[in-house]
Design a protein around this nucleic acid. Structure first.
Lengths: 366, 366
DNA sequence: ATGAAAGCGCTAACAT
DNA sequence: ATGTTAGCGCTTTCAT
């Protein structure tokens, strides 16, 4: 033992509170430490070999891999995420329980999987009510807390998005918005080409000889409705002698309004709805009042939504949710992996066209 | 200052490589450190106050909360997870793209949300092919890496589950299996009460006067088919003079086999299928051979699967996927939060009954 | 009621 | 080609 006559060093080291770091207790996580000890090297060596950094002796490599394999080592993604700033986890929030969004999710999932990324998923309540916005914000917080690399979401309404939009942007978290776009665009966006859909609807109905129209939708609250209506009206403007009235689905007395419109002189001969659900409502209301589709009036929906019963097979637009999802995921991956669209560049806006599906609810003016 | 004449302490401290830890750079994550500095206290204080541990002066608390709020502090769940061993994240793997599993997911999601837990979701390929098992294992690894508190899953097939089952169990990760049960039960399980469903099918058909039956399914590969068949046969055994043959859907020459069975003397008068998809196949095959349902033979399916076209409205069993999901999630939460079902206790097995839905594909023996 | 410090498992910068 | 060390942000003893 060394004498230390002059410097009074009390050698009662505080007994280390380190837990024993040898072979892992069965059921406890195997760490780089365990592998390193078994191999007689340091953790850095193990870390680098398993992570494929730097040059290493072939036999060292082999040894390390063998041990890792035998011990069934799995890297701790929490720590790694901390360390590297990348968790390879994407926050995904979509409206609940709709076939459409399940398909969007399918598209997202597939694209993410190929890039070794996994989704932290939450449905949002898909309600316009007050409580909804808090729920959505809470979901976003959960994702932020978990350090997702980025977020893909379709908000219940654009207003909701506005309320937590900044929380995402301020943290520089890449965001891809799906379907419901904020008017002042400051994020990537993927959705259906609603304007074009509206135009196509108009062109199709014009080609059947219709000239007087009615749009039924929810343009006050939904951008999609707004866009479909605007495309529709745009196309009408290019033909002379056309007219188009509007009715709000969510208005009270929808049925009376419809009947009022359709019973008057110079009544509309075709109705374009913001979506199939609206079309189904309209169809039901019309039937109650003895107005026949398509004999008395043609009806066009949007979405090709299954399971709705619109009285008569509905002419509508088929959307491509899988492609919407896949496109969104690709945009996401570009951002997150700082590829061509990486950080600095401008926001992307991708519109997937919808296809007109002609069924029995429309017919030519006689 | 103390003099230290005898001990030569070289004071050229290696310049600290610490990055500056003051106010966070805009867009960088706010940490406890930032709050602590602003408040003039230590991180421990902040940590304890925000975490609601220990007693603190009211004004200290108020100050800390105010700063956290203003800075929009969000805890880093990665670190917290590391530290506490709980991530409040559940791994969920379900078969892709089916309305049934979307509803299961809905049930799971809702129950988890109430417990402030979020799902790391992956669909599995839902194929019986070789590649499938590797994909599934990879998905499970991703979840393990991310330190999920537990896993809820429905494997593509029981065999797949076997191949990675131990990886989960050895790590003591709570596991709830959905729908496809391993024969030697060593995890929690939630599914439909298939045996009981089979019994009910038999009882119903017996009550219609049928005595000779055919079961069409995939009992070699699916437990659910096995169980439904076994319940069916069990119930038959309790009535005299009953007989039941079996045919494998996945066999080649299904149509020939069916026709063979149904054209012979003492032919079956009713067919019970392992699920609606099978029933649809059977119905199609029968029609090709001019055998009418239900005039010549009654047909019962399982699942009440929408979108299938079984020629004639199918008598089947309605399952309750949302409840399956919700039950699974509750089991999961019990395990993970070490409640009444916590660690030590035995595995749970919950069966949700399916309801017979009588439609036009069955009728009484004349 | 508050502070100091250890330690979680890993990566990356800096030696050698 | 490999070792040493700092540091990620947080929780949790242990001290005061």
């Amino acid at each position: 033992m060394d004498e230390q006559p002059l410097t009074i060093t009390t050698t009662d080291e505080p007994r280390p509170r380190l837990r024993h770091r040898g072979t892992p207790a069965p059921g406890n996580r195997v760490t780089l430490q365990h592998i390193a000890e078994e191999a007689g090297v340091t953790i850095s060596t193990v870390s680098r070999i398993l992570g494929n950094h730097g040059q290493y002796a072939a036999d060292t490599r082999k040894k390390i891999f063998a041990i890792a394999d035998r011990l069934k080592y799995r890297p701790n993604a929490l720590i790694r995420g901390m360390q590297t700033g990348k968790t390879r986890t994407a926050g995904v929030m979509l409206p609940v329980d709709q076939s459409y969004y399940n398909q969007v999710l399918g598209g997202i999932h597939e694209a993410l999987l190929e890039n070794d990324t996994i989704a932290l998923l939450s449905w949002n309540p898909h309600t316009h009510q007050r409580a909804g916005v808090d729920t959505e914000r809470a979901i976003i917080h959960r994702m932020i807390d978990r350090c997702v690399d980025g977020i893909l979401l379709c908000p219940s309404s654009e207003r909701f998005l506005q309320s937590y939009f900044d929380e995402i942007l301020d943290r520089h978290i890449p965001l891809v918005v799906i379907d419901r776009e904020l008017e002042e665009l400051s994020s990537d966006f993927v959705g259906t080409d609603d304007v074009h859909g509206g135009q196509t609807a108009a062109e199709y109905l014009l080609s059947l000889g219709h000239r007087r129209f009615l749009f039924v939708g929810d343009s006050d609250r939904l951008v999609t409705s707004r866009r479909r209506e605007s495309g529709f009206r745009q196309a009408l403007r290019e033909t002379a002698d056309t007219a188009c009235e509007s009715v709000d689905v969510s208005a009270t007395g929808l049925r009376e309004q419809l009947t009022g419109q359709l019973r008057r002189a110079e009544a509309p001969t075709a109705i374009f709805c913001n979506n199939d659900a609206t079309a189904a409502q309209v169809a039901a209301a019309l039937r109650e009042d003895g107005i026949r589709v398509p004999a008395d009036v043609s009806l066009v929906g949007f979405g090709n939504t299954p399971g709705l019963d619109p009285v008569v097979p509905l002419t509508t637009f088929h959307q491509h949710p899988r492609e919407v999802g896949a496109t969104a995921a690709r945009l996401y991956l570009d951002r997150v992996n700082g590829g061509s669209n990486g950080n600095g560049s401008h926001f992307c806006r991708k519109l997937i066209p919808a296809d007109l599906v002609v069924r029995a609810s429309t017919r030519a003016i006689s």
